[in-house]
């Protein structure tokens, strides 16, 4: 970790591979500064890791990177202990949070962090990039809360890119808050909602048995992508409703 006038730079890395005894080993488990990692109790063949926030942030000027790689046959469940709160910092400029996930053939990765809260005055750019080999499995959840209770949101740009076998499967960017391109809070984009989320599930078997599109209420839909994956997009009045919608959608996929 380095902390200079430009903010804190920190990287966390996880590498998962089969341990040869039916479980998953973590030969790489490196946290840094505000990105501390804890291995928690395994569940069957799956290794579980928790990202534990050891400092607040990201603040303006900070640059956090989280990298996880699941080698062939590994199963990794990666979550966070608490919500991430983007806050304004003393350093000028936006904060960056980059997540890089790589999943090999026959491996499975679950990236299930808690909410990202965009506090008033903060400026954060999040990029989540997932590279899946053919035959890889993924469950990914992202939730954004625009502003704490009764607070204006900060400026948030969040891009989610999932590539499968070298080709794009999903590429979506949301930009909101003060200074975002016009109409972000209007009737085509968020219509005043302050909580939104995405759930991405990629499974090779969806290629043979595609999931049908379905509505999950007026403000959420489960949609099959142009490939063996589905996306749930949900807007909600609060984080609790949002989580419930995404959890229910995941459970219907079996």
């Amino acid at each position: 970790m380095t902390a200079g006038e430009g903010g804190v730079r920190a990287t966390a890395r996880i590498g998962a591979r089969p341990d040869g005894r039916g479980g998953t080993a973590l030969p790489t488990l490196e946290g840094e500064g505000p990105l501390a990692l804890r291995r928690t109790r395994a569940s069957g063949s799956e290794a579980r890791v928790m990202l534990v926030g050891a400092m607040s942030g990201p603040l303006g000027g900070d640059h956090f990177t989280v990298e996880a790689e699941a080698a062939q046959g590994a199963r990794l469940h990666f979550g966070s202990a608490a919500a991430t709160i983007a806050l304004p910092g003393q350093a000028k400029g936006e904060a960056r949070y980059d997540v890089r996930l790589t999943v090999a053939e026959g491996a499975e990765l679950h990236w299930m962090p808690e909410q990202l809260i965009s506090a008033k005055g903060s400026e954060l750019c999040v990029t989540t990039r997932v590279d899946l080999a053919a035959g890889a499995r993924l469950v990914l959840r992202e939730e954004q809360v625009l502003g704490r209770a009764n607070e204006e949101p900060g400026r948030l740009t969040s891009r989610l890119t999932v590539r499968l076998d070298g080709r794009p499967l999903l590429d979506q960017e949301l930009s909101c808050g003060p200074g975002a391109p016009g109409g972000w809070d209007g009737p085509a984009v968020l219509a005043g909602h302050r909580t939104l989320g995405q759930l991405v599930v990629v499974r090779p078997e969806f290629a043979q048995r595609p999931v049908e599109a379905r509505l999950l209420g007026e403000y959420a839909a489960l949609t099959p992508l142009a490939g063996p994956g589905v996306l749930v997009t949900a807007l909600a009045p609060d984080a609790l409703h949002l989580r419930r919608t995404l959890d229910e959608a995941l459970s219907t996929l079996g």
Binding site: T161, E173, L174, S175, P187, V189, Y219, A220, L235
Partner: peptide, 14 residues
């Protein structure tokens, strides 16, 4: 660019 509008996507399914 990949700018997205969640409500356009959801409402299209509605």
């Amino acid at each position: 660019p990949a700018a997205s509008a969640p409500l356009l996507e959801i409402s299209a399914e509605v």
